[in-house]
Amino acid sequence: MPSRRALLLGAAGAAMAGWPLLAAGPRTPDAPARDPSRIVSMDFGLTETLIEMGRPPLAVPNPASWTQWVVEPALPAGTVNLGTDREPNLELLAALRPDLIVTTPYLDGIEPLLRRFAPTRRFSIYAPPKGDAYARSIIATRALAAAIGAVSAGEDLVGRAQATMEAARARLTAAGLNERPLLVVNFLDDRHVRVYGAGSLFGDVMERTGLVNGWTRPVNYWGFATVGIEALAEIPAGRLIYMEPVSPDTLERLAASPLWNTLSFVRAGRIDRLPPVLMFGMLPSAMRFARQLQSRLAEAPSHG
């Protein structure tokens, strides 16, 4: 059967002929340039930190969702879209010729790929064994600042964050908000929430601003637990804060839910809606959250 042999030969031939084409992958040095200017950031938390340090990245995954999840600091217009964070477009990455890529343990799976295009640094904020978002953010911020040759900008950011926490602490304590535990949640639908505990960015900010986190049960290393709303009934919390975005029909449905209406903070009307803050962010998000807590709780009367 010549057809069979021809096919086999063809396949083998194609494989051998094609080999040199494949093997010629780009090679890059391992150490970043002294003062990298073409930075690609794979994580919104790192991105906000870079922006705060005055060195915004060239490209990030899915920049369109920035306004939905991070908002502040603003992402510079013209930031290139890399696609999804799990699968950034490599052809685009190659064309951008970055001199530094920053990533997180969440994307360890593609780190070897990224290394082919530029020196790649990995910063660990949310990773096992357990959450410690704020303290790890400080460490990562300093490391990132060192990597881009902006040590003083990094120290400045850490200092600003500490100052923001202390200012918020003073205001919140003065307003007497440090006495009753409160809960911070994202609504997943009208029956379930993500509640943020110790080790989450929100939990750590609450701790540093003198607030008492009502959620003391186990959380994952991102610092949250997914629970039914009935689980909130067992928590003696005096206030609930929920973060945007919220799906449109959720609040309407909650208003009609008997259990929701028996929750102590619902009956007392102590529910606050806060604009989006990146829950898996770094110091800039921590500062934004602290400022929002301060302005919402200590400076304005609560709306239901």
């Binding site: 969702s65 939905q68 999840w69 609504f187 997943l188 639908d189 029956r191 379930h192 993500r194 997914t226 039914g228 709303i229 009935e230 975005p245 799906s247 009609a256 839910s257 008997p258 259990l259 929701w260």
Partner: peptide, 18 residues
Amino acid sequence: HYLAGLFLWGAGSLSQQG
């Protein structure tokens, strides 16, 4: 991110609040 609630729904949670 946005569809996290849908995963729950798709997986059939019986949790009730009324």
